[in-house]
Amino acid sequence: MRILLVEDDHHLARTMLGMLREHHDTVDWIDDGQKAANAIADEHFDLVLLDLTLPRKDGLDVLKDVRKRGVPTPIIILTARGDMDEKLTGLDAGADDYMTKPFVMAELKARIRAVTRRAEGKADSSLVVGHLKLNPEHGQLFLADSAVTLPRAEFQILHYLMRHPDQVATRRRLEDQLYGWDHGAESNALEVHIHHLRRRIGKTLIRTVRGVGYMLDSNEARNADAVS
């Protein structure tokens, strides 16, 4: 995979180059907005990591410029500007994802994988958390050695939780997944589905925060893997 890093801070850029190249990717580096815009348009990259504050041409302008020229290359914005507005502006201008400095390399790599997979047309979109593996195309859940086709509601819930492991999903979020925006106010259907899911994958994997929501615990998922 060929990655272009556009970053004007040399110290940070060199560190990132070292860490990204460990994984056998080809990584090129440009520290100037104008040059970056030309390079992205003229050459083929699988992914661009774009800083926003750049000499000669602002990162957002680079983004708008290459999108106007019809370049489809996936672009992840890396920025020190942490405002919500900036983030939305960036995504509106055609960025595929957005990360705020400082970031954890593991997370950046995960985002790179997600963005490139999306760009390649989801060759294998299976989600894996610990011993859980979910195939969204067929709604199939693979446990250690067995496979079941989940009912639609349980699939929707687990799909969301597996896409956001170790994050608490509010009840509202999960209900939106299940019913869209116009669901009824009071319903304990969510509890019922969670109850069924827990019976399938193990009680401790889905944790409850009372009055708030549920979280898929990736640690528990791995531990359960070791047990089974």
Partner: peptide, 8 residues
Amino acid sequence: TPLAALRL
């Protein structure tokens, strides 16, 4: 930015 470099 320097914090990002330091952390990485």
